[in-house]
Design a binder for these strands. Structure first.
Length: 728
DNA sequence: CTGGGGACGGGGCCC
DNA sequence: TGGGCCCCGTCCCCA
């Protein structure tokens, strides 16, 4: 094989100083170099790019890829993680391609070998040729054509299946090809492929330990690789992982046409058949993965051992399943969604999704003691069988999930939103019912419009601020006065309850939907369910963990067009772009200073608050206290009550958070009310002030004090309004 | 040396 | 599940 750019180098000798170069050229140098590179690749040494092909991951060197393929070159420039269109190249084919890139050889028995590498993919020379064309590797294209021509017509030889559907067809490690491809995950590449031979038993012992890099990399023990994979798809824990979020221009693989998807799972797939079984010798792990291997992931209660041929110790999940759960499926690889869907489809998951947390399994930890050791109905359960064939359609799922008593039951002490709100009375066709007034509507839109009317009504009655607070949920702020019986958001039948009916049993925060509530409830767990498999740090949300993983992998998919700087999050990029645009939307209400980033404004406001309550109060006093009056430095225009409140809030928050002086914080808030001369302004400000006072954890007395001190200022014509804000 | 601002990374949390 | 926002902390630069 010749590399295009290497050619340039080698041929340069023809141009000038050829004699010199000829005499200096070490024979076999390029071959030695390739051998070294390939050796490094097999060990993951200095590999700086991961190529995702359907459900397999390959590690490689950017330079080598770039030197071999114009297409790959365009990709590796931008990303460390490449997603290849598996319609164009299957994992098995890419393995051959990668081997070719690194060795210049196309395995002699490639056809036969590949045919059984991945049942279903059955790569032929034609497939390799297509992939080579797609990847723009002219040498491989030529080689394939040559070989096809020699054979006259390609006739793939189905391999013997070599033990467990493994990679046996590669047979003897011919010329370094055998162990050449350091695929991180090996699994059957296509659900459409024939299932592994019936006799295929999950490998155990040494075989299992070496059968996949995946297992080597992520399994903490010699567990069957099948356990790592979703049924049928034999999915990898990393398969389809898309941490890149975004492909560079021109690098995005062609997306599937809408509606197109991979073939459905084979119903006859043996539940626990065929582990992903590349029979490659164990390879040295790169440091990162050695670390992965060493790290024993903490128990993941959400682990589903799909396809696991045998029971696994509860609470001792393998790494792969952890990874599997945090992987993201790229839209372009749409079929991966099936896996997620299947995962969701597990009864246990459905239970969990519905708020019936599996933690409630008998003997499970009570509230606050963390999630359960495992799904009661997880994929490795008897019924699930592991092949996912019990995956229900959404409707079926809905139907099954209506079961108010999922296997896991509900956490004691946890409200079950499903039970509480999921079974309304019969309202005929008007299934969308307004709780406060009992009116039924045929559509959610109409109900929403109706609710809007309620909001406006509340606005008219109680003032915009309060209504807005209620409408916005004022989530989790709980009772403003700590009374416990005056919960704005949750009073039975109140608008607050209507809008945010799902309340946390631990902290009284309320949410619009049960999923958010469940998400929130995890923040109360002592055990965080999503551990980072690299550093072990645990997270309450999977998304946070995946984001965290991106930082480990150095994946920064969001690039600034102006300066090229890259970010891990879109929001960061948006924030960053303000530097280029000069936009500074965040203005200090005290001094008028403007900031491009809100966090810097906050930091700045804390600077204003230095000195504690007294300092802030004096600062407030020095502002004149009148709306629209320029600040002391004349720079900014004070916007009351927002300005006052902002400073007071920040100061109080600072005090409270530092636990320095909650009383001082309350005092400051109380003082703030003196600036609210306008009854209307006071009206709009008192409640949030008092609420915030309570939010800070201050005593109800202090909150009441805030109100009382401001109430006389806000003695507007609507006495009822003041009553509304008074503690009861 | 110190304080303040600019910029950024990371985590928590809600939608 | 991802996006968005908030917050904390840190680093760097500059006056």
């Amino acid at each position: 094989m010749t590399f295009p750019e290497a050619d340039i180098f080698l041929k340069s000798g023809d141009c000038a100083g050829q004699t010199m170069l000829d005499t200096m050229e070490a024979p076999g140098h390029s071959r030695q170099l390739l051998l070294q590179l390939n050796n490094q690749r097999t060990k993951g040494f200095l590999c700086d790019v991961i190529i995702v092909v359907q459900n397999a991951l390959f590690r490689a060197h950017k330079n080598v890829l770039a030197a071999s393929s114009a297409y790959l070159k365009s990709l590796v420039v931008h990303d460390n993680l490449l997603n290849l269109d598996h319609d164009m190249v299957s994992p098995a084919v890419f393995r051959l391609v990668l081997d070719f890139i690194y060795t210049g050889r196309l395995a002699d028995g490639a056809e036969a070998a590949a045919a059984s590498v991945a049942p279903g993919a059955e790569p032929s020379l034609g497939a390799v040729l297509a992939a080579a064309s797609y990847l723009q590797i002219p040498d491989l294209v030529a080689l394939c054509k040559k070989r096809l021509k020699r054979h006259g017509k390609y006739c793939h030889l189905r391999g013997g299946g070599g033990g467990g559907g493994g990679y046996a067809p590669y047979g003897r490690p011919g010329r370094g090809l055998r162990a050449a491809t350091p695929v991180i995950q090996a699994c059957y590449s296509s659900p459409a492929g024939p299932p592994p031979p019936p006799a295929a038993e999950p490998p155990s012992g040494p075989e299992a330990a070496v059968n996949t890099h995946c297992a080597e990399l992520y399994a903490s023990g010699p567990g069957p690789a099948a356990a790592l994979c979703a049924p049928e798809r034999r999915c990898s824990p990393l398969c389809g992982l898309d941490l890149s979020k975004k492909s560079p221009p021109g690098s995005a693989p062609p997306e599937r046409p809408p509606g197109e998807r991979e073939l459905p799972p084979r119903p006859d797939s043996p539940p626990s058949a065929g582990p992903a079984a590349y029979k490659e010798p164990p390879l040295a792990l790169p440091p990162l993965f050695q670390k992965l291997e060493e790290a024993v992931p903490p128990p993941d209660p959400f682990r589903g051992g799909g396809g696991s041929p045998g029971p696994e110790p509860p609470g001792r999940p393998d790494g792969p399943s952890l990874l599997y759960r945090w992987m993201k499926h790229e839209p372009g690889l749409g079929s991966y969604g099936d896996e997620l869907g299947r995962e969701r489809g597990s009864p246990g998951e459905r239970c969990e999704e519905r708020g019936g947390d599996p933690a409630a399994s008998p003997g499970g930890p009570p509230l606050g003691l963390g999630p359960p050791p495992r799904y009661p109905g997880s994929l490795d359960g008897p019924g699930a069988g592991g092949d996912g064939d019990d995956y229900k359609s959404s409707s079926e799922e809905t139907g099954s999930s209506e079961d108010p008593s999922p296997p896991g039951g509900h956490l004691e002490g946890y409200p079950c939103p499903h039970l509480a709100y999921g079974e309304p009375e019969s309202f005929g066709d008007n299934l969308y019912v307004c709780i406060p007034c009992g009116k039924g509507f045929p559509s959610s839109e109409q109900l929403n419009a109706h609710v809007e009317a309620h909001v406006e009504e509340e606005e008219a009655l109680y003032g915009r601020a309060e209504a807005a607070e209620v409408a916005a949920g004022a989530a989790g702020l709980g009772p403003p006065f700590g009374g416990g019986g005056d919960k704005v958001a949750g009073a039975p039948g109140s608008l607050g309850e209507l809008l945010r009916p799902y309340r946390c049993a631990s902290c009284d925060k309320s949410y619009k939907d049960p999923a958010t509530l469940r998400q929130h409830e995890k923040t109360h767990w002592l055990t965080r369910p999503y551990p980072c498999t690299i550093c072990g740090k645990k997270f309450t949300q999977r998304g946070t963990m995946t984001r965290h993983m991106r930082s480990h992998l150095g994946l920064k998919p969001f690039a600034c067009d102006a300066c090229g700087m890259r970010f891990t999050r879109q929001y960061r990029l948006t924030e960053h772009m303000r530097i280029h645009s000069g936009e500074k939307p965040y203005e200090c209400q005290v001094c008028g200073g403007k900031f491009a980033q809100q966090r810097n404004l906050i930091s700045h406001m804390k600077m204003h608050a230095v000195g504690g309550a007294a300092g802030a109060a004096s600062a407030l006093a020095g502002l004149g206290g009148l709306p629209g009056v320029p600040g002391p430095d004349g720079k900014g225009k004070l916007d009351f009550p927002e300005g006052v409140f902002a400073v007071a809030r920040l100061t109080a928050e600072q005090l409270s958070l530092k636990q320095q002086d909650k009383a001082a914080a309350a005092e400051l808030l109380a003082q703030t009310t003196h600036f609210l001369h306008d009854p209307k302004v006071a009206l709009e400000s008192l409640y949030p002030l008092a609420k915030f006072t309570a939010e800070l954890g201050l005593s109800p007395d202090k909150a009441a004090e805030v109100l009382s001190q401001g109430a006389h200022l806000a003695a507007g014509p609507d006495g009822r309004t003041i009553d509304r804000f008074s503690p009861t």
